[in-house]
């Protein structure tokens, strides 16, 4: 391929990427800097003055500091769900990979079913009400764990198959209890895939909109994605505030993206090569 043609293709690719992918994000950020009047024009223009700080203050303090509550709720939700997912998922992945029994077929079927079947919404609500967990944060945490387990287990099982069995046997011969074999020998070795799991699941749970909508109603319990949804009706014309809110809730995924890009890609492409 000639020198000129190569650069021509690159130039086109960069130009298209700017128009298709960067302009929408630039629009979000620019609008967050505008005053209500200019923002309502919805156009792609340079802000007339910097109103970002005022917008942030207004968004954060609105409805009794609802966004702060939501950030706290979302953080608790994300951290707790991911912690449980990692521990319980790794335990299942470990035994599932190591011990071949008649149950394995059934368990694998259930895992695939969990990846495919859409959760039955109203029966879940009915059940959560029955066990007094409906509309409570810890109920939603358990829901996120239940829905996230199949994917986490698959990632762990694939990784554990690369860890030699001799290691467990050596630890057992040295007199370690099964509990210690797993938590002191195996789990530390799973760190790379654990990081992948943490990153992928925390982005998914932090961005989750549907499950909080169904299982955690009420403003006191709002998660960050729902504040966006509430703002939309409240500030029907205040696009500056709406987009400031979008900017604020995009910051955590952006940080994750900047620091853990490789792990995310590794997790999301797992299984793509071998099918």
């Amino acid at each position: 391929m000639s020198f000129i043609r190569k650069y021509w293709l690159s130039a086109v690719a960069i130009l298209v990427s700017v128009v298709v992918f960067l302009v929408p994000f630039a629009f979000i950020v620019l609008t967050a800097f505008k005053d209500p009047k200019q923002a309502s024009l919805l156009d792609f223009s340079w802000p007339q003055g910097n109103y970002l700080w005022g917008n942030i203050v207004e968004v954060v303090t609105t409805r009794n500091w609802m966004l702060v509550t939501a950030f706290v709720n979302s953080s608790i939700l994300t951290v707790a769900s991911v912690a449980l997912l990692v521990i319980f998922g790794a335990m299942v992945g470990f035994v599932l990979q190591r011990r071949k029994t008649r149950l394995n077929g059934l368990i694998e079927f259930l895992i695939l079913a969990g990846l495919m079947i859409p959760p039955a919404v109203v029966p879940t609500i009915w059940l959560l009400q029955g066990i007094q967990l409906f509309g409570r944060l810890h109920g939603l945490i358990l829901i996120e764990v239940a829905y996230g387990l199949p994917f986490t287990i698959l990632l762990y099982r694939a990784f554990i198959s690369t860890i030699p069995r001799e290691l467990d046997e050596a630890a057992i011969i040295d007199g370690a209890r099964p509990f210690d074999v797993f938590f002191k020998v195996i789990l530390p070795l799973l760190w790379p895939v654990t990081v992948t799991n943490i990153v992928v699941q925390s982005v998914a749970i932090f961005n989750d909109f549907t499950n909080p909508l169904y299982y955690l109603p009420g403003n006191a319990n709002a998660t960050v994605q729902l504040t966006l949804y509430n703002f939309q009706s409240q500030f029907n014309t205040s696009y500056n505030l709406l987009f400031t809110n979008i900017v604020l809730i995009t910051i955590p995924p952006l940080i994750v993206f900047l620091f853990f890009n490789r792990q995310i890609v590794a997790g999301m492409t797992a299984g793509a090569v071998k099918g």
Partner: peptide, 8 residues
């Protein structure tokens, strides 16, 4: 067993 069923 080094791979206890209760892990599930």
């Amino acid at each position: 067993s080094p791979y206890p069923g209760w892990f599930f």
